[in-house]
């Protein structure tokens, strides 16, 4: 078999990813999500007893609640097909990865299904996120 020929012909017919469109879309969607998050922050700052430092927690919780509803109603994945990194990079992307896995494996029971698979996709973010913060903390400790 002539693998070189196969790869040359395949290269010719591979539809390229629409990089420019994807970048613009992720910029717009990601920006809108972050601006919306800022609005939620301001809402909590003005109407509730939160400070600039503590407002992050309820804001993230609200964004994840909205993500959960959108994922559960089957809308989030359709938005993500257009938005790409725009919906994946903010905290909503992490929320979606957790919630989508939980919904998918509910059919196998709550303990082995949901419990065992909920961090199937998000697990590596948690592991390497925690590890990275540990390393950064060590560096900070040494330098200061």
């Amino acid at each position: 078999m002539n693998n070189k020929l196969f790869h040359t012909v395949a290269e010719k017919h591979n539809p390229p990813r629409p990089l420019l469109k994807n970048c613009v879309m992720s910029f717009i969607f990601g920006g809108v999500i972050c601006a919306f998050g800022q609005c939620i922050s301001l809402f909590y700052l003005y109407f509730f007893d939160f400070s600039e430092e503590t407002v992050g927690d309820p804001t993230v919780a609200t964004l994840i609640l909205i993500t959960m509803l959108l994922t559960g109603f089957g809308v989030y994945d359709k938005i993500a097909q257009i938005a790409g990194a725009g919906t994946m990079v903010p905290v909503t992307g992490f929320g979606n990865a957790v919630i989508a896995s939980a919904i998918e494996h509910k059919s196998e029971g709550y303990v082995l299904g949901v419990g065992g698979n909920i961090f199937k996709l998000a697990g590596s973010v948690i592991l390497f996120g925690v590890f990275a913060s540990f390393v950064i903390a060590l560096i900070k400790l040494i330098l200061t």
């Binding site: 591979n14 994945d77 097909q81 919906t87 994946m88 896995s101």
Partner: peptide
């Protein structure tokens, strides 16, 4: 989709191919 790829509701952008 569940067997071979990601959970159905996972927001992932699929390429044109």
């Amino acid at each position: 989709e569940k067997q071979f790829r990601f959970p159905n509701e996972y927001g992932q952008q699929k390429p044109p191919s």
